[in-house]
Simulated assay, not measured.
Amino acid sequence: MPAEAPKDVSIEEVVALTQTLVQIDSSNPDFGSTGGPGETAIATYITAWLQHRDIETHWIEQTKGRPSVVGIVRGSGGGKSLMFNGHIDTVTLLGYDGDALGAQIIDGNMYGRGTADMKSGLAAAMLALLHAKTLNLKGDMILAAVADEESESRGTEQLLAAGWRADAAIIAEPTGTDIINTHKGFALFEVDIHGKASHGSRPDLGIDAIAKAGFFLVELDKFAHQLQRRFDKEANPPETGAPSIHCGIIRGREEVASYPAKCTIHIERRNIAGETQEGITKELEVILENLVAAVPDFKHELRSTFFRPPYYLPRDHAFIKLVEGHLTTAMGGALITIRAEKYWTDAALLSDVDIPSVILGPRGYGLHSEKEWVEVESLRQLSDAFKSTMEEFCS
């Protein structure tokens, strides 16, 4: 197979740069029946793009094959530093309707995997960094092009572990040009329901773990509805909406002619401000222990496998006001919405090390779905807002 031609690193226009990034397959290897190639190719391109302009560049690859790239334009000193954080991975290309890497523009929209989530925002951030190079800023301007946000956010974790910090950050996720100041967190659990293996002809010897798991799934569904109703009567319900829980994966035995000895249930729990990992684990433990008392031969094992906190920045924070002003100008005086989101972003990790962040990106649609697109005009507006925000904050 002939080698792919190198991508053009001379591009300095936000739409064309987005198209180039989309045309590089950086789908996350953690997803799909056939995992994607990961971030090496796109990290290599971003590095070459930065080095072509003599921008200081750093390569972070604590996990082999999962690199992140940092570009920095250093200020003269005495000013505030700003980080633009954008993930370079996408979800799987499998099941995409059409050319996932085409980046075609039709009726003012660009289509392809990652057009919205979030290579368009990343392109705007790259050009903001380039703009910083033309200015005499006092503060540093940092581009953090990070791996693995779609899975476990190893990129931003490793970035922070390497010591990178800023006085504020913008996460360029697609927000519809709204400013996001708060969002949910999430926790992952695995529950093993234990049975007893036997031949399918011997019910006297076997205990069906999948059937026992059914009791738990019924209770889990009831609990999910209780969570949704938890704040129904509150005068000031959480901006992010109620917490939620669902079963995403069930795995049992490999053949039909046997009683399964184990059924594993994978659970996702979306948490809100005030909820702790210990508290939400206890909720599941109570459900399971009640089933031990009520269901004959019910045995289980619960594991908490992953946890991410929610994020919150007060609406009256000075950085939100600054971003709002520049976004208003870039959008021709339009009224800007500041709101909550239900999904999780790397802003929560930045918050853990005292980096106040806003989530701001273009008008994009079809995230993680069979067709994804971004509105080209909103991308141009975003690029202008990023540049002017950076110019004032770092001056």
Rank of each mutant, 00 (worst) to 15 (best):
L327T: 00
H300V: 03
I245Q: 05
F307A: 09
F31W: 14
C394D: 04
S388P: 01
W344F: 08
W49A: 09
G121I: 13
L284Y: 07
F31Q: 09
V374I: 15
P174F: 05
I60L: 15
R229A: 15
F386I: 00
S383T: 13
N236R: 02
M110C: 08
L367V: 12
Y96M: 08
D232L: 04
L94G: 12
T63F: 11
S383R: 11
N236W: 00
P29G: 12
S76L: 06
A116I: 03
H87P: 10
Y96W: 07
D30N: 15
G36C: 10
M1V: 11
D148G: 11
G333V: 04
I171Y: 12
G252N: 07
L220R: 06
I280Y: 07
R269Y: 14
D117Q: 06
A3R: 13
E370F: 11
A340N: 04
E173L: 11
A242K: 13
A293C: 01
L101Q: 12
M331H: 02
K282T: 13
E278M: 09
P6Q: 11
G114I: 02
K233E: 15
V70D: 06
G214Q: 13
Q228S: 14
A132W: 09
D221E: 15
P237I: 04
T115P: 00
W164C: 02
L50Y: 01
P356V: 08
L284F: 13
A144S: 15
G79E: 01
H52F: 09
S258L: 12
F393W: 15
S68M: 05
D208F: 03
H266R: 01
T34C: 07
E372F: 02
L288K: 07
V218Y: 08
N181C: 01
I267P: 04
A125F: 01
H131K: 13
R165H: 15
E370H: 15
T175Q: 06
G241R: 05
G121Q: 12
G112L: 08
T345C: 04
D352V: 00
T305I: 15
S26L: 01
G112I: 08
V295Y: 06
I359M: 04
N271A: 00
V73M: 03
P203C: 10
A132D: 02
V14I: 10
A145M: 09
F393Y: 15
T345W: 07
D346A: 09
Y365T: 08
S33T: 14
L21A: 04
F306C: 01
L17E: 05
G112D: 00
V286L: 12
